[in-house]
Design a protein around this nucleic acid. Structure first.
Length: 341
DNA sequence: GAGGATGATTACAT
DNA sequence: ATGTAATCATCCTC
């Protein structure tokens, strides 16, 4: 019964006219924004064509089975009729035989329906799989995301609100922002060396922005963390939008002891610089001074990765981020070791 | 066309 | 629920 319903819903079973339109409509709904309508139309016609093919195969097979069922039933009936000459055969017995045959053929039909459902599912996944439709984000969106990421390098876990804000700015969904940060964190860790160049780029950008801000100090005081002046976003042009980030930087600075009073941009810059300075250079910063991820990552030292806090701290840190931001609590136990895996 | 970059999905952990 | 890691499928650059 469920199979029947599904096949009807997918437009394989049910009325012939407009077969597949339901599924095509579902496909249209599921595909979401981002694609041109023409492109959609092409894909949907393709999808409909394939679905029609499945539908045709399904119906011819079904017809074949029904025909075979009828043939076999009449065959058995004939046999019974012949037998009735030699022995009495009750109508009940005939009914029973017919029922058995029908049950058998029903089971075969269920198998047919199952495999048809599978085929439709595969077709759907082929056409509706978002991976097949992926488009790169706009340059501006990537810029905004990178900017946020590198200015929160010590704790690149945007809160729900920050994600919404970023999503709005980049014209993407919150889920896409989450995906982006997930991918970014992983790939940053995997390729620290290369990412450092990028990090420096954004750090320098921030520094430049900081200069221009300090030249014209007009930031609303209410927006600012006491120890972290605002970090304006050059591309966004709306300086007060990264409230969360300022608070997070405050959290980061709290752990750094001497950098507690350091302006955010300078801290970021320093992070970037220390990164470059340490990479391929024995001039490591003492961990107590700047226990940032670079010290761990650039060394590529698995032992170091396991030292300090265990995996719990890593997993506790992200979910706590928003709470920290909201409550303004600082974490006295080095929490910015997100790369310590 | 090859290979890297990138967005999305999945499995699994906490 | 949210994160990581691996992987897929596509885009993009050379």
């Amino acid at each position: 019964m469920r199979l029947d319903n599904m096949l009807i819903a997918e437009g394989v079973a049910g009325p012939e006219k407009g077969g597949g339109s339901a599924a095509a409509a579902a496909a249209a709904a599921a595909s979401g924004g981002g694609l041109g309508q023409q492109e959609n139309a092409i894909e949907h016609s393709d999808y409909r064509a394939k679905l029609a093919q499945i539908r045709q195969i399904y119906h011819t097979e079904l017809e074949k089975y029904e025909q075979a069922c009828n043939e076999f039933t009449t065959h058995v009936m004939n046999l019974l009729r012949e037998q009735s000459r030699t022995r009495p055969i009750a109508p009940k017995e005939i009914d029973r035989m017919v029922n058995i045959i029908h049950r058998k053929f029903n089971a075969i039909q269920v198998q047919l329906k199952q495999s048809t459902c599978e085929a439709v599912m595969i077709l759907r996944s082929r056409f509706l799989d978002a991976r097949r439709k992926r488009r790169n984000f706009s340059k501006q969106a990537t810029e905004i995301l990178n900017e946020y990421f590198y200015s929160h390098l010590s704790n690149p876990y945007p809160s729900e609100e920050a994600k919404e804000e970023l999503a709005r700015k980049c014209s993407i969904t919150v889920a896409q922002v989450s995906n982006w940060f997930g991918n970014k964190r992983i790939r940053y860790k995997k390729n620290i060396g290369k990412a450092q160049e990028e990090a420096n780029l954004y750090a320098a950008k921030n520094a430049a922005a900081a200069d221009s801000v300090s030249a014209a100090p007009h930031m609303p005081a209410g927006d600012q963390h006491p120890s972290a002046p605002g970090t304006p976003t050059p591309t966004s042009g709306s300086g007060g939008n990264y409230n969360m980030m300022n608070q997070q930087d405050g959290y980061m600075n709290m752990q750094n002891g001497d950098s507690y009073n350091m302006p955010t941009q300078v801290a970021n810059m320093r992070q970037g610089m220390s990164q470059t300075g340490n990479y391929g250079n024995d001039n490591h910063m003492p961990h107590t001074q700047n226990p940032s991820m670079y010290d761990h990552a650039e060394s590529g030292n698995a032992e170091r990765m396991n030292s300090g806090s265990d995996t719990h701290s890593q997993h506790n840190s992200p979910p706590g981020e928003s709470e920290r931001s909201a409550s303004g609590h600082s974490n006295e136990e080095g929490g910015n070791n997100w790369s310590n895996v």
